[in-house]
């Protein structure tokens, strides 16, 4: 029982991860895909933060005396970098989405596929 209840946050993280992946795969809207990707990345960030927790540990600033337990600061620092990466990815993905909207007039994947098929057909007709 303790093995599962003590690890409840990992279950939550895995659920979040699956939600994110599902949204990326199943949604047709490109903006929603970006949101799914964000959820997925957040789950990885939470995973690191959760594992940095030391039960009974305080903030990792050297203040207390001997025997004070500190949380592990390293995963937090790593996740700072991962957050920066996430911000950059999101900004770039949204910028691309805007450009796609300008070029195709839509950000729905099925409509984009239709546009592409039309384009292909007109190209092959031209070359014949």
């Amino acid at each position: 029982m303790t093995a599962t209840s003590g690890l409840w946050m990992y279950w939550a993280i895995i659920a979040l991860m699956m939600v994110g992946l599902y949204v990326v795969i199943a949604r047709d809207n490109l903006v929603k895909k970006v949101m799914g990707l964000n959820i997925f990345q957040s789950s990885a960030i939470l995973f690191f933060v959760a594992m940095a927790k030391v039960s009974g540990g305080t903030a990792p600033i050297l203040t207390g005396g001997e025997g004070t337990a500190y949380s592990n600061p390293l995963p937090h620092v790593l996740m700072l970098t991962a957050i920066v990466v996430g911000v950059a990815t999101t900004a770039l993905a949204l910028a691309l989405t805007v450009r796609i909207q300008e070029a195709y007039g839509t950000v729905e994947e099925d409509e984009l596929a239709r546009e592409e098929r039309l384009e292909d057909r007109s190209l092959s007709r031209k070359s014949q």
């Binding site: 992946l21 990326v24 490109l30 895909k33 990707l37 997925f40 990345q41 990815t89 770039l92 993905a93 691309l96 989405t97 450009r99 796609i100 070029a103 195709y104 984009l112 592409e116």
Partner: peptide, 17 residues
């Protein structure tokens, strides 16, 4: 080509995953 945008987008999604 405007398809470069779609190619970059889908590479971004897959690459980030």
């Amino acid at each position: 080509s405007r398809r470069a945008l779609l190619a970059a987008y889908s590479y971004l999604i897959v690459g980030t995953i």
